[in-house]
Simulated scan of single mutants.
Amino acid sequence: MVHGATKRGSPLSLSRTWLRTTTAVVVALAALVVSPAQMGRSEPAADNRFLVTAATASMGISVQRVSADGTLIRVPGSPFPTGFGVLSLTVSADGSTVFVPHILEPAVSGYRLDRSGRLHKIPGAYQRFSGPPTAAQLTPDGKHLFVVVGGVPGHVESFAVSSSGALRPTGAPHVAVHGLSTIGQAAIDPDGRFLRVLTYVGNTMSSYAIGANGHLTPRGVSTVGPGPVAPAFSPDGRFLYTSDELTFSLSGFEVSDDGSLSRTPGSPYPTGGIPHGAIVTPDGKRLYVPNAIGVGTSVAGFRIHHDGRLTPLPHSPYPMPLGSLPGQIALHPDGRHMYVVDVATVRSTSSQVHTYVINADGSLRPSGAAPVDTGLLITDGPVVALTTVGGR
C-alpha cells in the first residue's frame, strides 16, 4: 500500500465462473489476434438525457432515453453497432462523445451522441492496438484519452482528442501496469490529476500522475482486495472505493493531496455478495454497489462518513428480482431514481435495466416500471453511463 504523508480534511460459484470465463475467453481471442440531498427540488424536463450501455458478448451500444418522469424508452436503431468485446465505456462531460475499447479487433472506437440519442461514428476516432484494450478513460476536460492494453505486463497508451472527437497518439511513452493486467480497469480522479489502473489477477492498483500532453508518471502501487473491479470516486475526489469480487467486499482509500492512498477506517467493507460497479451519490454521502451473485442478488447501500468509513444504510442490501444479475448502477440527477443494469438476465434474451426509487433514508424500493431490455448480451465491466447531451 502507498501511504500519503498529508491527508485532505453449488449455484454461486458456477454462475460467477461462467461470467468471468466469458470475459477471459474473449480476452484470450484478442491476444491471439443525482443525489438524495436534491430530493424535493423540481428539475426541468430534459429530452436529451440518455442511459448508454455497452456489452462484452454482443456487438452494440444500447441507448435508452430517460423521460422526465424517470422512465426509459429505447432509442430507435438501438443497439448501435460497434466492435466485439467491450469491457469499458467513457463519455465526455458534455455527453456528446462516447469511446469504447473492443478487445477482439483489438481497437478503440469513438461515436458522436446526438440529441435524439443516435450514435454516429467519428471520422478519425478509430485506433488499433497490439494487444487487447480492456479500458478507456477520458480526462474531465475531454482533451485526452487513456487506453489500458492487457498483457504480462500490460501498459497504458495516451491520445489527444480533437474538438471533432478524432484521436491522435500523443507520442508520450507507454507506461507499464504493475502485475497481470489482462482484464485491467481504470478511473481518473475527478480533478483530472491522476489515473488509477486495477489488475484483476494481481490485486493491485497502479497510480500515475497526468502531465501535460498526456504524459504519465508512475506514482506507486497500492494493494487492494482479491479480484478488484470498477474503481469509484466520491465527487470531491477525497475517497476511492474498489469492488473486490473474490472477497465479497469493498476496499476504501483516502486520497491525499499528493495523490497517494491510505486505507479508510474499517476497510474492507462486506457487501453481502459479489460486488460489481459501485457508485457514489453526487452529494458524496452515500454509496451503492450491485451484488451480481450472493444470498440472492441485491444492491447494497452504505453511508459514507467524514473519514470515508462505510456503514450499511437501513435494510441494506436491497433484493433484486429473481433471475437478475445486477452489475452496474446509474443515478438520475433528480436524486430519486436509480437504474440497475444486469450483467445478464436469466429470464430474458438480453441484459435488462431495473428502475428503483431512492427513499429519504437512502433505502431503495422498486419504481413499479417494467424492466427494459437493452438488446445486449453480458454487460460486464464499467460499461454504463447516464449522460445529458449538452451537459445540462
Rank of each mutant, 00 (worst) to 15 (best):
T6I: 11
V26P: 04
V27Y: 10
A28H: 09
A30F: 04
A30G: 15
A30Y: 03
E43I: 12
R49I: 01
A57Q: 12
R65C: 04
I73A: 15
F80L: 09
P81F: 05
T82R: 09
L87G: 15
S96I: 03
P106V: 04
Y111K: 07
R115V: 14
G117S: 09
K121M: 07
Y126D: 15
P133E: 01
T134G: 10
T139K: 02
V149A: 00
V152S: 13
S164K: 13
H174T: 14
H174N: 12
V175Q: 15
V177K: 10
V177F: 00
S181G: 14
A186E: 03
A187S: 12
V201G: 09
G211H: 06
G225E: 00
A230T: 13
A232T: 07
S234N: 05
P235A: 07
G237V: 00
L240F: 04
E245M: 15
T247F: 00
S249G: 05
L250M: 13
S251G: 10
V255T: 11
D258A: 11
S262P: 01
P268R: 03
G272C: 09
D283Q: 04
L287D: 01
S298D: 05
G301C: 03
H306T: 11
G308Y: 00
P312Q: 00
L313P: 11
L325M: 15
A330F: 03
V340L: 12
R347H: 12
S350T: 15
V357D: 14
S367D: 10
A369Y: 14
G375N: 09
T387A: 10
